[in-house]
Amino acid sequence: MSRNKLYILLAIACLVGYSWLFFNYRSGAETDPDGPGVCLIKEVTHIPCPSCGSTRSAISLLHGNMTDALYWNPIGFLLGIILVVVPLWLLFDVVLKKDTFFRFYKKSETTLEQKKVAVPLIILVLANWIWNIFKAL
């Protein structure tokens, strides 16, 4: 993937992410976990997927409820950090015509493909998934 393609894709993803958060913030999804969902796994099998609850987590973060955010889904923290950092980093790169983020992306891809990094992360995601199923999100 080229630099520009990645940047456009990420910019669109961040835009969609922020609109999704805004939409859910307005409709109070935090208090209504049984509202209409977009997660196909949950809609079809009634079993939550590893990232179910991260919207509720991010909205709890916006309200400043750290413990609630952690309870709903720890992935929400990660998404929150990405949503803050990535647009700023992209803006920095685009304005200064650099490719620091692109190189970081490529480097982290090769890091993630190493077994000693990938296996613990897969175990973490699986553990989070099992926790999600127990919480019945």
Partner: peptide, 19 residues
Amino acid sequence: IGDTGLGVGKLLTCGGLGI
């Protein structure tokens, strides 16, 4: 297929909100 970055993105966002 080796698109690890996009894979992580898809995993963390429930398949990009299903879209």
